[in-house]
Nucleic acid binder design. Structure first.
Lengths: 188, 188
DNA sequence: CCTCTCATGTAAGACGTTACATGATTCA
DNA sequence: TGAATCATGTAACGTCTTACATGAGAGG
């Protein structure tokens, strides 16, 4: 449901068409949320039906593909958005992630598999961190809230990387201890 | 889909019935994932159909409610679980959170509303941090991976609280500057 | 010529949440 | 007596993802 309001929020900046909304979200917040056409077009449709946006077909013959449909926010849309914004956000953050889901159970597998998965996550998060830091510098002088949000992204990645490195070291140490104990046992 | 494997993972520790699985997940990982009966019972059913678990009805007359159904993991279940565990986890973490979704757009509302929301989040995260620290101390000597996961929970909350406090201070400062500028303007 | 990007949209299915229905026991 | 906890399950609904269908222009 909040995707509707996210669209209304973006339309405060300027009029946009569906495709632009998606690439805008991906470019700016894509590291935090994902969105797809299956959500955007039906939502735009229902926003239109509810009178929260208006649409104007723009047929520029020189352009590629089908004619764009420019959406603008209406007064009612702004009101509905303001109401949503002032309302207390319900529900809290949950870190739902396929890696973390597996992580809990790595004790049932070989430590080597766990280390491999951790290394892979390190590559992913390191790359993402670079991208987020880049984004942050682009937004230096922009909207305060958008910048703060970008800072959260950087903090999050930094924190996770630290945690992964520490976990890696701990698991390796534990593995070595287990191996030397096994060697001890076979010696006596 | 991963809930199935989470159930198989838990059944490695001991045989459990549906209700216990839910309370176990809530107690131990509930701050990270939520689960409900609408997911557990159908998943147990399909695990049973696939032969990954077996079920034994336990009718203890002295107990309350309907007879429990104890589920055990089978050899095939263990194999399927091991395969899942060794497979590379696809998809990456996304922080999807109603508060953060609103946060980006707080620039369109009154700073006072933003501060109120931040204060509320601070209360929530502070309470959660205490709970997570408590959990962590309970798991001190337990499974290494479960403990590391708990440490991630604590790190996450600590990081978010720091970020919220910083954001709060920045927004207040910006608000004061804007107000004094407005006062300046009315003076001249 | 073939692939990529731009641009719109639909349909099917996987996944998740909420609410409901049932029923016994324990505790205030 | 009434609420809470234990215990099972289903149905309806909502959301999210994936895949498909269409089509034009740009660039290698």
């Amino acid at each position: 449901m909040s995707i509707k309001y996210a669209i209304l929020g973006l339309l405060h900046y300027k009029d946009m068409h569906g495709y632009r909304i998606k690439s805008h979200i991906e470019r700016n917040f894509g590291h935090m949320w994902s969105i797809n056409f299956g959500q955007i077009y039906p939502n735009l449709r229902s926003l239109l039906d509810e009178g929260l946006v208006t649409m104007k077909a723009v047929d520029t013959p020189g352009e590629k593909g089908p004619g764009r449909k420019l959406y603008s926010i209406t007064e009612e849309g702004k009101q509905a958005f303001a109401q949503w914004l002032a309302a207390p956000p319900e529900g809290n953050t949950i870190l739902r992630d396929p890696f973390l889901m597996r992580f809990i159970f790595y004790g049932f597998g070989a430590p080597a598999d766990a280390l491999k998965a951790i290394d892979h996550q390190l590559v992913v998060y390191t790359g993402q961190l670079a991208q987020r830091q880049d984004n942050l510098s682009r937004w230096r002088s922009h909207d305060q809230y958008v910048r703060l949000m970008a800072e959260l992204g950087v903090s999050f990645n930094t924190m996770v990387i630290q945690w992964l490195e520490n976990a890696r070291a701990e698991i390796e140490a534990m593995d070595r201890t287990a191996q030397s104990k096994a060697a001890d046992g076979s010696q006596t």
